[in-house]
Design a protein around this nucleic acid. Structure first.
Lengths: 201, 201
DNA sequence: CGGGAATGGATACAGTCGTATCCTATCAAG
DNA sequence: CTTGATAGGATACGACTGTATCCATTCCCG
């Protein structure tokens, strides 16, 4: 066995095992031993690379945020030159679970969100991405308004808050099987139509 | 000690203790012994009135649904004669946490919702109320459309789905402290204005 | 080439969990 | 007054939890 080990890779491996458990069986099924089994290592290894279970949990949340961030950028890049409406469609469309992996991540995200309601340490880590998203979109919408792309009587921050809440609520209903991904996308498109006007691209 | 005991009252007492724990410390903090301590009884009593922890959990979810149902009717009654818009304002306003008790219940509801994602038994119990709400509001909106209260090109079910998702998403952000109750109410009112027209009561 | 750090296997510890069992009061009915 | 069901206190069980410790490798560096 080598003495030199890529610690970051090891930690990533364990974090991914953690997220796999959390997204399929819930955060309550996450234990040190379960992570070890899922990652195919011994319990000692999990202890070796993470001082605490708490540290492990926070690492999982950070990884989830990074994945979401990466997905948004990937979507935006695939769409090429983006109109203001295109930016919103990309971001909100990325919040919705649209393939198996993003569905699993949304499950894990929901589990973390709930845990954060009664665990301040997780709340601090978990709120950074949503807040950043809201600020980013608000800035974009304010610029779009100054460019005349949306009506001047709209309040950008209120609009963005509503759209993000809508996307989150729709994610919930898609995860619980109440609605399909397509139905949720239609509802978002419908609201974007109302905001940007029906003939905006 | 009497031999005759009101079993329903006993079960309600225990269920309320369970919900108090779930809403303040999360479902993960709910154990048979914690419920006993919270209710001021012995562990044996909890076992005596509920065969399982699972039965206890399902009872908590049922009670949460009943509370929500009761609150909606109370609000609607307080508003007296209700316009179509009034019905929507009452229902959606009741979904949002608006006082301490409803905030606690929303916390517990969120915890249950997340648990239901990986626990089919809970999902069966938990989805009945949301589905009933959606059907009820869709019927109301369809009637309002036939009466000419909303534009004929709107799809009632899509509108209702969007509004319920919005209310749920706003509830999440209020619970996590991202937004105040007033800000959330404003966003809902704003969307109701767009649906019913700004001069509807 | 030998020693000390890096890595991880094996095991132990004190708690807590859900559940089961044993046993004792209490009270309604015969 | 006695009997038997009801109600609940006390305690035990095995499984699982997070964490700590002991010990054997392996490999880099002097």
């Amino acid at each position: 066995m080598p003495r030199q080990v890529d610690h970051d890779a090891r930690r990533r491996q364990l974090t991914e095992a953690l997220l796999r458990i959390a997204s399929t069986r819930g955060l309550r099924a996450v234990s040190m031993r379960e992570i070890a089994a899922e990652a195919g290592v011994s319990l000692r290894v999990v202890q070796y690379y993470f001082t605490n279970k708490q540290a492990l949990l926070e690492s999982g949340l950070t990884e989830l945020g990074a994945r979401m961030d990466h997905r948004v950028k990937q979507r935006a890049a695939a769409a090429g030159e983006l109109t203001p409406r295109g930016v919103f469609a990309a971001v909100l469309g990325t919040i919705l679970p649209f393939d198996e992996q993003s569905t699993l991540d949304s499950m894990a995200w929901t589990a973390y969100y709930t845990a954060a309601l009664t665990d301040p340490a997780l709340a601090a880590v978990g709120l950074t991405l949503p807040n950043a998203l809201e600020n980013f979109l608000t800035a974009r919408l304010t610029a779009a308004q100054q460019a005349g792309d949306i009506a001047p009587d709209r309040d950008p921050r209120t609009e963005v808050a509503g759209l993000l809440a809508l996307a989150n609520g729709l994610t919930s209903s898609v995860l619980s099987g109440q609605r399909s991904h397509e139905a949720a996308t239609k509802i978002i498109d419908y609201h974007l139509d109302r905001l940007f006007g029906p003939d905006a691209v």
